[in-house]
Amino acid sequence: MVTNFFEKTGEMTIRQVRSCGRLFLFFITGVINVFILPVQFGKIIEHTWFIGAKSFFVIALTGVFTGMVLGLQGYYSLAKFGSEAGLGAAVAITLVRELGPVLTAIMVTARAGSAMAAEIGVMRISEQIDALKTMHINPVRFLFTPRLIASIISFPLLTALFNVIGIIGGYISGSILLGINQYDYMDAVIKNIDIGDINGGFLKSFVFSVVVTTICCYRGYYTHLYSGFGARGVSMSTTNAVVQSCIFILIFDYIITFFLV
């Protein structure tokens, strides 16, 4: 029994170490290929359209309601201290520093990250990735690198969009619905947000773009190793990709915030 326990623990440790090594090599290969010519313009544009432009609506919708909820909650909390005029600052700081990058990353993971994992997973089980190898095409360069670049372009832009729409959402609930002076609201937004907050938010969205794309593409690419072959394997790797991405978004959010504050 004791031997069995140690055997299983050892086996699991070796598997985890191997998995980490594989993930690291996958990531490094993808990053190195960013700098290898020719630049894959067509694929980068295609994926930027899919990850970025097609996420516009979902980000706008999430942003406006997040902003409205913040406006509503913030108003009643601040009203207890007679500080309703500070609502703009509260909404803007919360969005720019924290909720903008995090919620954008989670929404993009749900929409585009899952699609990346599923698409690459299907390519794995239908031998399309093997076919790339037989054609002497580097599959990591072909599948991961353009998605990585597209995510690095899209995430910060979507975060900026989320922030702006969220602030407008706060304005709708705070000023239009609850009657805070609109100039006070906008004045508080402008005065309380500095470039450091915006840069911090963008730094987070950059890190999240790398984390989400790497995990989702990696899970899809190694579907056969972790989840098995077949439709069930693809669905499992997609679920794992989304769950792990969300967890790592929150972990990295804490780490970055720790160093920024």
Binding site: E119, S126, E127, A131, T134, M135, I137, F142
Partner: peptide, 26 residues
């Protein structure tokens, strides 16, 4: 070397032209 897969392994998101051209276009 070239390999023809049992289940063809064609890229379903690419057109027939793009599929055939892939080994050269890359």
């Amino acid at each position: 070397l070239s390999y023809m897969f049992q289940d063809n392994a064609l890229f379903d998101s690419m057109t027939i032209y793009e599929n055939i051209a892939l080994p050269l276009s890359e």
